[in-house]
């Protein structure tokens, strides 16, 4: 049942061309190479140090690993991480 609702939402967003991250309530991430990542629509930071950053979002938990990770900017809407990013994992 839950699956059905999700797919309906997705279909609606496709038909109406609504921004999907809004409809699905999913994070929107913009990478600039492996140097910079902007994450919008997040909930909070779970873990932060210079090699691992874990960020909670509505759908997944993000686990970003890298080197010299720094939070350039943090507001309630978006978070900008910079450093050298190795991996991004989605943990359900």
């Amino acid at each position: 049942m839950k699956k059905d609702i999700k797919s309906i939402k997705e279909k609606v967003s496709e038909i109406l061309e609504l921004p999907r991250e809004v409809v699905l309530n999913a994070p929107r991430m913009v990478f600039i190479g492996n140097k910079d990542v902007t994450i919008e629509n997040y909930k909070g930071i779970i873990e932060y140090n210079d090699t691992v950053v874990r960020i909670n979002t509505n759908t997944h938990m993000l686990r970003i690993t890298g080197q010299d990770l720094e939070i350039k900017n943090i507001t309630s809407e978006e978070i900008i991480l910079s450093g050298i990013i190795y991996t991004v994992e989605f943990i359900a």
Binding site: I45, Y48, I74, S76
Partner: peptide
């Protein structure tokens, strides 16, 4: 609880930048 500190600051509109561990 540094992560917690950052989260609360964000929620209370206290603006932090260039955070470095």
């Amino acid at each position: 609880f540094i992560e917690k500190f950052i989260n609360i600051c964000t929620r209370r509109q206290i603006y932090l930048w260039d955070i470095k561990k």
